[in-house]
Simulated assay, not measured.
Amino acid sequence: MASIARCLRAARPSTTFSRLAAATTPRAPPGWQLRAFSASPCRDLRRYTKDHEWIDVSADKTTGVVGISEYAAKALGDVVYVELPEVGREVQAGDAIGAVESVKSAADINSPVSCTVVAVNRPLEERPGIISEVPEDDAHGGGWIAKVELSDQGRKDFDALLNPDEYAAFTDAEH
């Protein structure tokens, strides 16, 4: 019993530390109220094509990230090869920018908008299965295909794509 009590006593903050923390905590001037601020992450805008690609664009609609949808990844099955687009390539909406091959089939990856490819997800070349595991993840290590800069036409193309609810209804109708 004594050893448990010693451990608990050691884990409790010392009163000296508590007094020091209280002394250094900022205080509001008299008559003012402290207000807690929270920051929520800036959410990218996501849209889908009827060919099952997605694009997340920044709030100013100048840059984006492209990939294939979870629906497409499930339909493909285990992806064994991913052909990535060439960096610097300018494409129009609907142009093929790459391809995926799985144990079931192969499919082109089409650009959802008019854009220029500025970066590609190189880890997909060595581990194409990532695209099956996390197809709609645009983070490092996710299944995204390319990062792009949207042209003026690309911003117009984006507005014509399906929002998440419309895409869900579209895929439900495909069953």
Rank of each mutant, 00 (worst) to 15 (best):
M1G: 15
I4R: 09
R6A: 14
R6E: 12
S14A: 06
T16V: 07
S18F: 03
A23R: 14
T24N: 07
P29L: 14
P30W: 00
P30I: 01
S40R: 12
R43W: 10
T49A: 01
H52L: 00
W54K: 07
S58N: 15
K61W: 02
V65G: 00
V65A: 13
V66I: 15
V66N: 05
I68Q: 11
A72P: 00
A73K: 09
V80D: 05
V80Y: 10
V82M: 08
G88P: 01
R89E: 11
V91Q: 04
Q92L: 09
G94P: 04
G98D: 04
V100H: 05
S102R: 10
S102F: 01
K104W: 02
K104G: 06
P112N: 03
V113Y: 01
S114D: 05
C115W: 04
T116R: 15
V118N: 14
E126I: 06
E133L: 14
A139L: 08
A139K: 05
H140Q: 13
H140A: 12
K147I: 12
V148I: 15
E149N: 11
D152R: 10
G154T: 05
K156F: 03
K156N: 10
F158R: 02
E166T: 08
A169L: 09
F170H: 14
A173S: 13
